[in-house]
């Protein structure tokens, strides 16, 4: 246990399209379900953005780090913006791309307790 505030975890199922590989989506969800960590998940972040759903703003509000498993960070950042829930200017919100990142890597980043140590640093 450490004192780093637990990151809030969001997971997008991309349920209306097949652009995120199904195995990656399933493995990431299984990884989240296997942990003791709470998480919030959406059938389709694009749909939430189109509806200007108030849960998007709530999900990234506050001071805690937020990690979002979805698709390309550029798309997700502007989807939130279009929903009236712009990302903060700092790097508090991190987007993990399930379109081209292996599931194990996504799960490790979602559940990690802070920034991964850089192995090249002394």
């Amino acid at each position: 246990m450490n004192d780093t505030p637990a990151a809030k975890i969001l997971y997008c199922r991309c349920a209306f399209a097949q652009v995120v590989p199904a195995t990656t989506k399933d493995e990431v969800l299984a990884g989240l379900c296997a942990a003791e960590t709470p998480f919030e998940s959406f059938a389709d972040l694009c749909e939430m953005s189109a509806r200007r759903d108030p849960r998007l703003a709530e999900a990234i509000a506050g001071e805690v780090p937020v990690r979002i498993a979805a698709c390309y960070p550029r798309a997700v950042k502007w989807l939130f913006h279009q929903a009236g829930a712009p990302f903060p200017d700092d790097d508090r919100v991190e987007v993990l791309n399930m379109r081209d990142t292996p599931a194990a890597e996504v799960v490790a980043s979602l559940l990690g307790s802070g920034k991964e140590p850089n192995p090249s640093e002394p």
């Binding site: 349920a15 709470p38 998480f39 919030e40 998940s41 959406f42 059938a43 389709d44």
Partner: peptide, 8 residues
């Protein structure tokens, strides 16, 4: 999620 719900 596949049916369109949000799950917390």
């Amino acid at each position: 999620l596949d049916q369109g719900y949000s799950v917390l």
